[in-house]
Every structure is written in structure tokens, then in C-alpha cells.
Design a protein around this nucleic acid. Structure first.
Lengths: 229, 229
DNA sequence: TCAATAGTGTCTATGAGACAGTATGGT
DNA sequence: ACCATACTGTCTCATAGACACTATTGA
């Protein structure tokens, strides 16, 4: 007989889909499992939610432990909860997946929890085989990130401040894997209310005319939305 | 010391934000709690996830038990998981919130689990005080439903097939609480690919010219999106 | 015939795509 | 001078909002 009262042994974890932009490609943080099932395989960083923690707190803590980065400065949102029976062979486990986006994040530091973590291009991660149902979680995270660029301002979360409009455009081009017209992109971004704020400063690229630098504006929604061809 | 291994006693539930359109107002299904904490107060329908159940299965089962409706014909999507410590005074409880949308659903049947369930206008539900953190869950469900009308075809989930374009427009007007130009609305819906499919049949209203009847098309996304003023 | 709702057509403003042309730096 | 990139301006097309107009029913 099934248990109806929630007293059956269950575990609750958070798993993180952490994206960053490195060397013109979208990268994902993966860890190599050091114990338990799927030992030695690649997996999303994550862990058990503690007794006294909120879900978001748990995600922020794992983010810090795995990347060494102060997660409070990253974009972090809940993705979806996965709980299909058998997804963890040990015990019924529900995992609350989070999506984190950040500018070119540092390499994991040796000698910490993050020692077994590394960045991998998302295209590779999609096909290399991940532990548990993490491939499905990654798929969903990628889909969410792509969709959110359209109608929100999260693209700026991938940029280190201050940034140029070319860098911001580059985010769209990499995540969507297409080219955008620089002229039309500029017009759209500058017309949108409070997407970016000009600093009046300029930065010279390796070659070509210096570009003006911007910071993130307060707007979270982008209207009208950016459209994918 | 906190437990790190997920063996602390925790419960996992699903809670449902079920919206339907009745008498020109958006309604929410609420139950009166018959036991436990918050006894006698209003709450979202929901319950424990069983050992052998997927999360979506659990949501569908609760939906059937609470409304007597075959949930497989309703729109059902996961909203977010809530797990703040203390949200349930008995035991650490994580609840996976689901959003369900359906056409004018029947009244809960006496003599079943649904006996203590009833429909309430959303405007009232927002202010009447709900058990646990259900007010926050409702808020999020309402926000999600409103947002999804913009760029998906879920509005049709509120319509009993076959339906007229006026009925579909009415969904937008009620959920968004504004008026839409019938002419422009028709143009937009018919131009969108596979949003609705004409049946060739007509239905006469109480007064006025009969309107053509439509069925839901296969499209899930709406492009270009419907815009709120 | 009238009221009420369904459906068509049209004018205008706005925003997007395409792309020409100008500005400003480094070599 | 030349190249590469930043930035500006313009033409055209598609779509949305406003709204006038026609069509079809019941009373």
C-alpha cells in the first residue's frame, strides 16, 4: 500500500544549471561525481536542502560552494521540480532545478568543493551524457534561457559591467546562434526603457572605433520584445 | 546540527491553482480544510505525492478528486515549488504548485472528496485570506496565467469547444480586465497560424447575428504575441 | 424597422529588416 | 591611407490601433 501521509523517506535537493559566456560560446558548469550512484560521471552541481534553508538559499549556497562566486550578484531563478520515481536509484528524490546566469565566471578553485567542477561548452554537454535526469534539466534550462532573452533584460546578466552594446549583442548571437544587425539591435536596445544606462565612458577594442560603455538599467521586462528570426 | 543527507523528515505535496471562467469572472477552486492546521480555513486543493507517482500524475489525481473532472483534458503546468521552512507548522513541507486552466467547470459534487470545495471569484480569493502560503501561490498563478495569454494559445483552454471568437476574446478581457477591439482581435487571431480552426458551423446568440464556431488549433505559441495596453 | 452582435475594410502610426553612409580609433 | 568597428540615417514592409461600414439574426 502506498503511503499517503508524506512519511515515506524522501529527499529534496537543488540542482543548478549555471551558464556563462566564455570564449564566444555558452558554457555550463559540471562536476564529476565523487560518490554514490553515477560515480565518476558528469552531473549538474547541487546538493541536499538543509533543514533551516529556503530553496533559494540552498541554491545560492551550492552556487558559492561550486563556483566560489558570490551568487547574490548573479541572476538566479527557479526552473522546475523533477520528481519522477526512480530518478535517483537510492531513495525517492525531488530536485528543485535552478537556472543561474553570469558573466565570464572564474575557473573553479582547486582545494575546495569545486575542485571537481569544470566549464564545458553547452553543445558538448548536451551530447556527452549526464548523471540522473540532468540532461533533461539542462535542456529545460537552455530553453528557458533562450526564451527569456526575448522578453526580459536577462541578457545583460551575462555581461560584466560596464559593457558595450556589441558585447550585449554578442550574448544574443551566441545564445540564439544567429547574427543580428548591429544597427537595428542598437536602435531597439536604446529605445527600450531602462534596459541599459550609458556611462559616458568609452573603451577601445583591439581594432576599430572605441565603443560607449553601459550599465544594466532597472527594467526587468523588455518591451517590445526582441524577436528571433 | 543540520542534517545534510536528506534524511530529516520532510513531506512533498502538490497544490493546485485551478482557474475557470464562470459568469464573466475568473474563478478559483478552494477547499475548506477539514483537519490539521488552519482547520476551517480556505486553501488551495492539494495533497501528498504518493510513492509511485510522478509529480504531474499527482496533480492530475488531485484535480480529479477535487473537481470530478478528467484532468487530462485540462491545461496543466508546473508553477513553482515553495519550501520556506515553517510554511507548514507540522513538518518541513515542500509543495510543488501547479496551474490548471479549464472551461466553465462543474460544481464540486456532494458526497465526494470535493464536498468541501467551491468556486470563488479570484478577486475575492486574493483578499479573503488563505491557509499556509497559498495566497502567494495564487498570486504567482494569476501572474503566470495573465502572462501566458500574451505569447501562447492557452486562452483557448478556457473555452468549451466549439467556441466563437467573441468567447475567446472574452477570456482575454476577463483575465486582463480590459476591453479589446473585436475587429482587431479577430484579425490577429485568424492571422496567427493554427491558433483556431473554423468548423463552418454557426451558433446564434440570444440576440444578434450568429457567429462562426471554432476549435483549438495545434499551435501552442502565439506569434506575434497578443499585447496588453 | 430596430437593436444588437458578427464580420469587413481602411487610414495611420509604429517598429523591424535591410542597408547605405559617416565617424573614429589603430597600424 | 587603409582597415575595422562604432554609430547614424533612410527606405520599405508588416502589424496594431482606431474606427467607419456592412451583414445577419430576433423581436
Amino acid at each position: 500500500m502506498s503511503k499517503y501521509d508524506g512519511t515515506a523517506p524522501v529527499a529534496v535537493t537543488v540542482d543548478l544549471v549555471i551558464f556563462t559566456l566564455r570564449r564566444s560560446a555558452l558554457h555550463l558548469l559540471l562536476i564529476e561525481r565523487g560518490k554514490g550512484p553515477f560515480l565518476g560521471e558528469l552531473a549538474l552541481p547541487g546538493g541536499f536542502v538543509r533543514d533551516d534553508e529556503d530553496l533559494r538559499q540552498a541554491a545560492l549556497r551550492e552556487l558559492g560552494e561550486e563556483t566560489g562566486v558570490d551568487g547574490t550578484r548573479l541572476h538566479l531563478e527557479q526552473l522546475r521540480t523533477f520528481g519522477t520515481p526512480g530518478r535517483d536509484p537510492r531513495v525517492r528524490t525531488f530536485t528543485v532545478a535552478y537556472l543561474a546566469l553570469g558573466p565570464d565566471l572564474p575557473n573553479p578553485v582547486a582545494g575546495t568543493d569545486a575542485a571537481h567542477a569544470r566549464w564545458m561548452p553547452v553543445q558538448d554537454a548536451l551530447t556527452c551524457g549526464l548523471a540522473f535526469d540532468h540532461a533533461a534539466i539542462l535542456q529545460e534550462g537552455l530553453h528557458r534561457a533562450r526564451a527569456k532573452l526575448e522578453y526580459t533584460t536577462v541578457a545583460a546578466a551575462f555581461c560584466q559591467e560596464p559593457f558595450t552594446l556589441a558585447e550585449l549583442r554578442h550574448v544574443y548571437e551566441v545564445v540564439w546562434d544567429l547574427d543580428l544587425d548591429p544597427s537595428n539591435f542598437r536602435r531597439k536596445v536604446l529605445k527600450a526603457d531602462d534596459f541599459v544606462i550609458p556611462t559616458g565612458e568609452y573603451r577601445a577594442p583591439e581594432v576599430g572605433r572605441p565603443a560607449e560603455l553601459y550599465r544594466r538599467g532597472r527594467a526587468e521586462m523588455l518591451f517590445p520584445p526582441m524577436v528571433r528570426a
